[in-house]
Every structure is written in C-alpha cells, then in structure tokens.
Design a protein around this nucleic acid. Structure first.
Lengths: 348, 348
DNA sequence: TCACCCTGTTTAAACGTTTTACATTGCGCA
DNA sequence: TGCGCAATGTAAAACGTTTAAACAGGGTGA
C-alpha cells in the first residue's frame, strides 16, 4: 500500500499538482468549482501533505528548537507550557532537547568546557534539523554569554542571560522590592534578608530591590541583617538561627527561595519562634511544597508561563526579521498565605 | 551568503556528491585518502547536512512525537526526561506537543468528543511531520481505547491505557501490596485505605493489591475501613475523620495519593491524633511537598523516569518492526520517611 | 478586428540529500 | 592472455512538495 501524495490527489481531481498546492496553501486563486473538487478528493483520501517535503522546498520548517537545561526542574515545564501556547497559536512546532545537566556524569556548572561541548552539540543538531530559531531555558539565571553559537539563527534565552542576545527574565529587583513594600504595609520596619549565593545574578538583583525599598521607606538598616545562603534548605535553617540570635532581631525576613524558607521555618519551630506571630517570612519561587508547610508560606510567584510566551514571541519576531521587542520584563506576583502578620507591638 | 550544501563540499573535495554522502553516513567504502580529503573540507566549511533533505530522501526522520496531556502536571516532566534519555542514546529527536488539557477552555475529561478532536488533530499534525512513532503521556491513568488513530504508525501510551495498543504503566497492584506488607512488617494489622475515585483504573488496581495483602497476611478486614475519596485534599481530610470516629479505628491507613494524605494529616493534627505515634500513614506519588509535611510522609515513589525509558524503548522496537517487548511493568519504590511507626501496644 | 489584460491553469525546475545503476581500474588466477 | 571480481568512483534519478514562468481562453476597449 503506497502512501498517497500530492500527485495522486492531482490525478484524481483531474488537475495539476500545482493546483492542489494552491488549494492547500491558499497561495493563489483557484476557481471555486475546481477548489471544491480538489478538497473533496483530499477529504476522501484523508490526504495530509508531507511536511518534510514542504519544508525542503519552501525553506520554512515552522519548527523551533527548545533547549532545556533540565526539564525536571520546577521552572521548566511551566516555561515550556508558555512557549507551547504561543507556538500553537502560530502553527509552530517544538523540537525538544533536554540537556539533563544535573544528571549527566560529572556535570557541574563550573565546568564550562564540558557544558559548552554539550550545549553546542545540541544547538548544532537543532540547526541541522533546520529549526527557525531556538529558545534556551536555563535552570538558574546565570550568564551564558559567548558559549553558544547559532550561526545567525535567532536565539532567545530565558531563565538565564547572554550579552547581546535577547533574554527574557522576570523582574527580580521589582519582586523583592514589592515583597519589602508588602512587609512594610504590614507594619514591619526591621526586615532582614537571607540571600542566595552572591555570585548569582538574581541574588544581586533581589538584593538591589531589598536595599532600594529599605532606603525608600527609610527602614532600619543593619549589615547584620544581611545573610548569604547557598539556596539550600540547610543554609536557611542555619542563617535563621544567626539572625534570631542577634541582640535586636528582625521582625520579618525576606528569603530568596522557598527551599531556604522551609529550612528557616524548621529552625524557627525548633527555637519556639512562632511564624508569623513572632516573625514574618516571605519566600520566593512559589514552589509546590510552600503551600503545604506549616504555616503556608507567603511567597513570590514567578511568571514562568508568561516568560515562555514572551520568549517565544520575541523569537518569532526575530524570525520575522524584527529585532525591537523590548517589552518590560514580566512581574512576580505575591501569593499571600500565612507566614506574614503584623509585628508584635512590643518589638515594633 | 549562500548556505553551503553537499554539492559545495563535493566540488571543493573534487569528488561527486555521492562520495560525500558515503563519507558522512559510512554507507560504503571510500578510499581512506579520499575520505580524509572530504572530511577536511567538511570540517573547514563546518558543513552539516540538511536533515530535512536527508529525511525526505531516506524516508527516515529519526523523530518521534511526544504528546503530553499536560506538561505542567507532576508526572510528565520526569517521563519526558526518561523518553529523552533513551531517545538521545538512539539519536532520535522529539517533537513535542502539549495538549494543555486542563487549561483549554471548557476542557473536561468527560467530554470525550472535544478531547478526541484535539488529540486527533495533534496526532495528525505529528504524522504529517513524518514522525516515526508517538508516545502519549496521560495525566492520569484512564482508558483511551479507540480515541486516537495513527494510520499504522506505532504509538505507545504511558500513564494511561488503550486496548490492543502498547501501554506502559507501573505496577499499581504490586505497589499497594508492598505498602501493606511494609505496614505489616511494622506490626500493623488494622489497616484502612482511602482510595481515589472508584471508576479510575489505578484505584481498582491499588485496591486489589490492598485486598490481596489483607487476605494473604490474614489481616483484620472491615468494610468500614474502605473509604473512597476523590483524589483531592479535602476528601482526605474528611475521610480521615470518618475513619477515626469508628468505634475501633485503624492503626494505619494507606492513602492513594499524597494530596489526600496531606488532607488527612491536617485532619489528624486537628483532632490531636499524632502521626505516626497514634496512626501510621502511607501515601502515594512521592510529590515534592510530601517531604515537607510534618511529619514527612512515607510514600510510594512512581518510576516515572523508567516508564519514559521503557515507553521509548517499546516504541523504538515497534518502529524497528518488533512487536514483542512484553517487559514487566516497572515497580514503585517505598520512600521511608516519618509517617509510619509501630502501632501503640495498647491498640495493637 | 486586434492587441491586451485577466483569470485560472499547467509545466517543469527546483529544494538538498540518498541511492541505484553503471563505469573504471587493478589484481589474482587459470 | 583473458576473465572474474573487488574496490572505488560517477551520473542521474528519485523523495514530495512549491513556485516561477509559460500558456490558454475569454473578455474588453480602441
């Protein structure tokens, strides 16, 4: 049983293959009567054009490549979902590559050479598959400048950065600024921060937002209120201790991810510090588990879906030759739950 | 600047295009000297063959389609990760389609017609892109028999079922059997169950495992110990109450997902029932949050990654013409945490 | 009446590969 | 010497579309 092609349709409809092509793509006027006839045959044979052949000839694959550093990391599926939504609306397909950065043997972010080898191989592979562009999804927002070459095909980075390339990130600074403003609105003025590693871009940005709010609202500023963690739960546990042993401890803490916030919560509970009665906590990331902790953590939700959409939009613009797209970075949204309350009047 | 192709390489290397093709694919002997020359030119121009053209001619795309009902659901990324691992090893590419079942307006599992329309459209689209096969990832293990037609291309279902088609699922019955056996080994004999909706396949299978273990270990059996929830946290909360108000309550409960287990935990805490001291609980799914509850839930981890690998393996076999692959379904693994202890001696 | 345009259609040349069929050479061996 | 065969190479026909260019057959206006 031979696969039927455009020739068969043309034959049956008693027209040339060109007409069939015109009918399918609407690229030229066809007499309604003829069109009808062709459509009927197409229907009858349930014919669908071979997209590979179309691509070869038309030089448009309607396919973009998505490279995920690790699809099992919490941010990635949501971003892909956003990419997908936009792609679907524009009849684009997604060729997915999962780098599996964490799971590959000896794969460590600091080992730039190994990283580059793998990433570049993935890109080359996509390019040879004639993708019209690439969106790259990082696993944490680091700088990837100069590591990847796409041979002039557009690439858009999201959840990471690359100089002179388009990259879509949410507004980290604004997010932590908003968090502080929220705490201020609840009456807090002694607000500490547990940051992530300081060589990470979001740590710096979030710290900027924290510091900006402190200045703007003329809050108490104490260098001891600034603790630097390593993003892991243990460091949150540890640093909360340090913070609360200060002679004059804070009434609220901004913690730069939910993982550390969870650790902090555990430390608080062990020390008999009641959250939010004695201490308010705002987390970051809105991880699934943050709604299940006791108390449920008030946290910053990342606009992952939007980032995916925007990344895809920017990519499509570039594919279409437009470079501008300087949209504002999407904003995080505070999810109010139970880890923030007004400070106790005696410590206020 | 023209894109360079095989002809350019052939020209520069002073051979015919056929030779270049042979060198690239190793499909025929080429004199080492010639081969060397060709490779050098390829290197020099950084030439990579156009995969689209290769596919068109060779009729092999090395691409499979993955249809995810919803990529943001917890099971899906892990499964894709598994698919990806196997695919990468076999030089296959993944064309990703995300149905976004939950998010599409008015999309409800019971509305089979709408579902079928969308799913079939996705399949047709992949087929026209000449994928060599499809793996379909469900969002919960329901029966999809007869809804999708692939025009003779192989399809493998995972996390869902379809009669007369290959579907990869973990061993639900064994999992709950193992859970009960574990509880028995801890000394429990009065074991209740909170099941999911009874029209769902896994509920039935898990109940089978529960019942089989009960019989085999000659445990106390009380119809009142069987509660049917709806998979949601609220129903766990509710049903734990009912169970514990029984004149002679169980000492342990198998709960068929972590969501309901979380609800149950809340109910227990409100009632002053201490888990695991007064009551042991085993959950299902090993959701991220289950490690953050208080106590951390002992739960059944699903072999999602393996399922992805197996699905892909089965698919590749089918693509290669082999139909057998009747491997055993992968097994769940108990993650021991803090929600199980020996029953108190006074209620034993 | 004729030159011209318009519309709908066909012809055939691409697109960048793979692969079949054939050509050439050289070598071993009867 | 001549034959068969292995090893290497080439030419050209696909693969299933799109699309530029040519063409047919009426109108239409001068």
């Amino acid at each position: 049983m031979k696969k039927i092609g455009i020739k068969d349709i043309a034959l049956r409809a008693n027209v040339s293959t060109a007409i069939v092509s015109y009918v399918i793509n609407g690229t030229r006027n066809v007499r309604p009567e003829t069109k009808e006839r062709v459509l009927k045959v197409i229907e009858e044979f349930n014919y669908r054009p071979n997209a590979i052949a179309q691509s070869l000839k038309s030089r448009r694959t309607n396919t973009i490549g998505v490279i995920a550093e690790d699809i099992t990391v919490f941010n990635t599926p949501e971003i892909i979902d956003g990419i997908n939504e936009y792609a679907e609306k524009h009849d684009m397909h997604i060729l997915l590559t999962n780098l599996r950065l964490q799971k590959k043997v000896g794969y460590n972010y600091a080992d730039t050479a190994t990283y580059q080898k793998h990433a570049q191989a993935a890109v080359s592979d996509l390019l040879s598959n004639q993708v019209e562009g690439i969106v790259y999804i990082g696993v944490h927002p680091r700088d990837l400048t100069g590591l990847i070459h796409t041979n002039d095909r557009p690439i858009v980075y999201t959840y990471c950065y690359a100089q002179n390339e388009c990259s879509i990130q949410y507004n980290d600074e604004q997010a932590s600024y908003d968090a502080i403003r929220y705490l201020v609105s609840k009456g807090h003025s002694r607000i500490a921060v547990i940051s992530g590693l300081m060589d990470s871009i979001p740590s710096r940005l979030r710290f900027n937002g924290y510091y900006k709010a402190l200045t703007e609202f003329q809050l108490y500023f104490d260098p001891q209120f600034i603790k630097v963690g390593d993003w892991g739960g243990e460091s949150g546990y540890q640093l909360l201790g340090e913070l609360m042993e200060l002679p004059d401890p804070p009434t609220a803490i901004l913690i730069m991810n939910d993982l550390m916030a969870a650790g902090a919560l555990r430390a608080a509970s062990e020390r008999g510090i009641s959250v939010p009665k004695d201490l308010s906590i705002v987390g970051f990331d809105n991880r699934e588990f943050s709604a299940y902790l006791n108390p449920r953590i008030t946290t910053m939700d990342l606009p992952l879906h939007d980032m995916g959409m925007l990344a895809m939009k920017a990519l499509c613009n570039r594919i279409g030759g437009k470079q501008e797209t300087t949209e504002d970075p999407p904003l995080c949204k505070l999810i109010e739950r139970d880890s923030v309350a007004e400070p106790r009047s005696d410590v206020k």
